[in-house]
Amino acid sequence: MRLEWIEDILAVADTGSLIRAAERRNLSQSAFSRRIRMIEDQLGTELFDRTRKPVELHPAAFEQYQEMRELALRLRRLAAALGDDSHARTHVVIASQHAITTAIAPAFVQRIAASHDIGIRLRSGNRDECYMQLLTRHSDIMLFYTTSRQPLTIEPGFVELHSIGFDSLIPVFAASCLAGLEADIARGELPVVTYPDEVFFGRVLRDDIRSRIAGVTLRPKAETALTLAALQLAATGTAVAWVPEALARAQIVSGQLADLTPRWGAQSLQLMAARLRAAHSSVAEEVWRAIVSPKRS
């Protein structure tokens, strides 16, 4: 159990309201509700009876109320005795979408490591998972993609955003297998790698890209939530995959992959950095400045 989790639970138990608890914890109600749900998912049980007003702890959780309060107090005292880890620690946790972790984040880490004595811990996930890591303070900074039709729904009063660049979601395919692809297209079919609809790139493919493709029927050959897997499926000639250009650039330059953007178009992606509007450790502040203002870091 993290101290933040215990304090979230106690805030609801003490106020009897998710709204007032969110105010106490300096979060919007929607962000705080998601955090409580995440805590319950992690523990594998519901903690509160939300049908009651005021909201009450379930009996099993209520039995641990005093223990949680005492544990929170002990953890605060321990943090103080150790000099407050939020100021003493020398590492920063960055949560980023899988494709960013592979293709873009290493350059950030290299630049930061070259001029700062700071350790970086990269945590990879889909966009929603990364956002939840940020909200629950499992990460200091989040790196993610967004589009005009697929924005990340955030709590603007509690999350700070900064645009740090652009990328494109492009269609690629094995250069050595283009003749077979042309034969499929001549039959009116386009073999594609798809993403699950519940992940960011799945929604982009469904809402932003498919409507632009005319004259052929899309024939899904494989589905994956990982852009790196989609890239490999395209490289082996299995199907056309839409992947971030940054991820595919090296294989396009080497001639292994063909960029099919002139034929099927691309989707612009905005690269964003986010952090909570809260007090940050000195090292987290250094890394944030290095990411959003690299020329002045």
Rank of each mutant, 00 (worst) to 15 (best):
A278C: 13
T238Q: 10
H116T: 06
L122G: 09
L260E: 00
F173L: 04
G180Y: 07
I252L: 10
E129A: 14
W242T: 03
V253M: 11
G202I: 02
R123Q: 12
R203N: 12
T45G: 03
K295W: 06
Q251P: 06
R25C: 08
F144E: 08
I213A: 08
R74W: 00
T217H: 02
L226S: 13
L122R: 10
E63Q: 14
W242M: 12
L47T: 05
F166M: 13
T101F: 10
Y65P: 06
R76L: 07
E160G: 12
V92T: 04
I19H: 12
I39H: 10
H116F: 07
P106R: 05
R149A: 14
D117C: 05
A174F: 06
G44I: 07
E129C: 03
R277G: 02
D207N: 13
H58C: 06
I291K: 01
I141W: 00
D140M: 02
L27W: 11
I209A: 05
D49H: 11
Q110E: 15
R77S: 08
M68P: 06
P106T: 07
E155I: 02
A234G: 05
I252A: 06
R219I: 00
T45E: 15
S86Y: 10
L134R: 05
F201R: 03
R50L: 15
V287T: 05
A113V: 02
V287K: 03
A22G: 11
R2W: 03
N126I: 13
H87A: 11
R50C: 04
R20E: 15
M1S: 14
A234K: 02
V240P: 01
H280P: 01
A279W: 05
A107R: 15
L135I: 13
Q251V: 08
A61L: 09
